[in-house]
Design a protein around this nucleic acid. Sequence first.
RNA 1: GGAGAGAUGUCAGAGUGGUCGAAUGAGCCAGCUUGGAAAGCUGGUAUACUCGCAAGGGUAUCCAGGGUUCGAAUCCCUGUCUCUCCGCCA
Length: 423
Amino acid sequence: MLQVSYIRENREKVLERLTLKNFKQPELVDEIIELDEDRRKTQTQLDEVSAKSNSIAKQIGDLMRQGQKEQAESLKAETPVLKEQAKTLADKLASLEESLQSKIVLLPNLPHSSVPKGSTPEENETIFEHGEKPLLSANALPHWELAAKYDIIDFELGNKIAGAGFPVYKGKGAKLQRALINFFLDNAEAEGYREMQPPIVVNEASGFGTGQLPDKEGQMYHVGIDNLYLIPTAEVPITNLYRDVIVKEEELPIKNCAYTPCFRREAGSYGAHVRGLNRLHQFDKVEIVQIAQPEKSYEVLERMSAYVQSLLQKLELPYRVLRLCGGDMSFASALTYDMETWCAAQGRWLEVSSVSNFETFQSNRLKLRFKGKEGKTQLAHTLNGSALALPRIVATLLENNQTEAGIKIPAALVPYTKFEWIN
RNA sequence: GGAGAGAUGUCAGAGUGGUCGAAUGAGCCAGCUUGGAAAGCUGGUAUACUCGCAAGGGUAUCCAGGGUUCGAAUCCCUGUCUCUCCGCCA
């Protein structure tokens, strides 16, 4: 959520930046500014009336104590008018605040100055590419066929007990999952992240804090009876740990990581390109989350990007890094890097990580602030990234490392799997 | 699921209608003291909105939302959460 004061003071810039994000309702900006002006005027009026009432109440108190009952009574006569005024103003204020809030949450975050123009994934900017695309033999298989061949992931069985998009990992498939989770967590710890285990259901306030609610409600599984949501990413609980918190500046940056299952309804997306592990309703992910000082957050973002890349390098996966264009970025992000691995049998790039700086967009919703040496409190910047999401890593590993003898586990992972081959 | 108790500042904890943004203590910060430290002493120590160049002022906030009242941390209603006991349970 953008700050009203910022919109008020930077109208032109806000409009210009929203254009880059292909925002369709620029008229909202002026509506917000107008509502805000009205809101502040009403606030001032209400404050004045309240000040008057307070002073009268105080005088009545004084008079009563001095036993001057009659004068007190005559002062009381003045209050009904004030009360009426206060009520009217308070109602007006509440309704102004409500419409202001309802409009301001519709504005996406403003993109950083380095964000390229564009509205489709094709217009994302490839800023780095690493590793050789493997040359597979003509009879190479996509991962879902390899999964069946080696009996390590069973999509049918998951179908039976839950539905499409809930695979069952079996034997070495399950062990590979566990190995990857541990590999990612150990690396994150070495990078300075504190491991956390949060709840994987969250309440409404948490969903709002990180921006999933109210608009992306349909993407989360909702447990109606208790009004809880299954998390779509660990970002939600981990970032919300700091909701309504004022941290000390010297504690920054705060670095947390967590492994959690993630749940996404992804309603209505079925088809060939979502086969196998490409898109699931439940998947595992290790997430890294940082809270940083505003002037350092872009440095932090680069560092997070480099860290994610180091994981891909250790796993010996060919990848590229994209800087997302304005139209392809998420609602809340100011700058996003996507990491994609080359999935050789499918012959396509698969997104395995997304690293973003949200600047104050989330912290404004969360009321996550820090207090500097001078005692001034200000909103902190939040960042997060997948490090990494498992299914597409598994898909890439299976497809790229398939040989006549089976699937070769990358050396860095063998201490975790304790086997070198799936065969 | 049943019964009861409770929710006050960074923490502990007072406060049952006015002088309460809130006693007291601890913590923290600054200063004094000291060779340095401890102890001691002195002062400071919430957040949001708003007015103001500033100094400073106004308003709101004692879990949340309503209500009673000239006036609510205090009384009433509703909700949420926490704790204790019982039941159930990995």
